[in-house]
Amino acid sequence: MVAIVQNLGARLVYHINYVGALTKLFFQTLYWTFVPPLKRERTYQQAKRIGLESLSIVSLVSLFIGIILALQTAYQMQKLSSEIYIANIIALSLVRELGPVITGLILAGRCGAAVTAELGTMKVTEQIDALETLATNPVKYLVVPRFLAFTFMLPVLTLYANLIGIIGGYLICVYRLGIRSSMYIHMTFDALQIKDLVTGLIKTLVFGIIIAMVGCLEGMRTEGGAEGVGKATTVSVVTSFILIIAADCIFTAIFYFIFP
């Protein structure tokens, strides 16, 4: 019994420490973001890697999500003879919820893991120490460009994913379910309000920060060679997934009560 309590206590302390370390890294990153010299090309390079190179997978996944949403909604709506509302449901679920979350999860798996693996390898091969000996702050040099790239690219990619998802829904609705094209577009715009878009984008901003911070923190804490890099990468992806879903839950609740 004592062992169980001790174990639970140790885990709690570990998690509190972890959140502390994440918060500390976040504030350090914010500080170094505004300390000159600001080298744009490093951020640009990261943004290209995170944004441009993720386009194909984001397109594919969000197209499928749009199609799935349309089919699943149709299944229910046909029973109620209200197929007309499928467009509304697709637009709202994508823009408010699925677009941000799916894009966040894709980037956490594709790019957050890559960031951890890269920084982790740099850590175990002493490249991060070497940066310090060259009078360069690792947070400024490594974390800031990735932080900016994630927080900028995730909202942009989400907007794109929303659009592709709606197109996926359109394909099913117009070509399989016989809804008129103009009707689908009209119903989509009719359903969406600015607040839906804004709340979705606020979420993506938070997800971007989570992926960047977890990815970089795990990378910079890596120890123990190749095995350590593997472990850190796994922990990074799992932690990002959990934090993204938890943050999503909290923000959805907050937005539900603030903007009913």
Partner: peptide, 27 residues
């Protein structure tokens, strides 16, 4: 102070995203 000192790491610790020139001239 660090700018007046330099360290050669055991495995080299070269930045593998940069060329040799980029590494040597980093600072």
């Amino acid at each position: 102070l660090r700018m007046r000192m330099a360290m050669v790491f055991q495995g080299g610790a070269l930045f593998d995203s940069l060329t040799v020139g980029g590494n040597v001239g980093f600072a």
